[in-house]
Amino acid sequence: MIGFIKKDLAMIKSNFKLLGVLIVIYAIMGLMEKMDISFILPFMCVMIMISSFSYDNYNKWDAYSISLPNGRKNSVKSKYITTLLMTFIVSIITTILSFIISYINTQSINYEQILVTMFGTVFGTLLVLTIMYPIIYKLGVEKARIGIFLIVFGIVIIGSLLANFVDLSNILKALAFLEDYLIIILILVAIIMVYVSYKISEKIYLKKEF
């Protein structure tokens, strides 16, 4: 398994510089009290990992990887672990930077706001991952681009229809008591989402022929 993670990391290492540059830009913009781009950084990790699927596809790595010990299971596992690893490391760096920037700018640290923003960002990133990876495994990375477009489009349409026909304010009021536990709920939901997505991807990949 470690080998598969090493291979994925080796593939995306050229993107580490780009991430570093983005983190620096974020810090400078934060210090100048300009736009907050922290939400882009974890999301970039998933996008970089998705580009690794294209490289795999181009050189037919999938078929080759199956000829290696435990190739099918480890291929999927390593994609999820590498993505999570990158997302968490970048999120932790961004959070620490946010604390420092907040302190320099205001001489105080707004822990709650920074943490909620960061957890929200990581949650959104993981949501993209959990939806995209099974689609990529099912359809291949090229067709998955169309698939994800249709899904996002569908979610927006359904969301706007719901907002038109259902009064969400009552639901939000009913759920208000959960606000204190928001971060814990987000973490739990994220864990379940990623696990279910991983299991679906694994099931697809175990049966797939190349």
Binding site: K7, M11, S14, K60, W61
Partner: peptide, 11 residues
């Protein structure tokens, strides 16, 4: 395998 190997950006 014929034309199936590691991604070519690797060393």
């Amino acid at each position: 395998l014929d034309d199936m190997f590691f991604p070519e950006i690797l060393t």
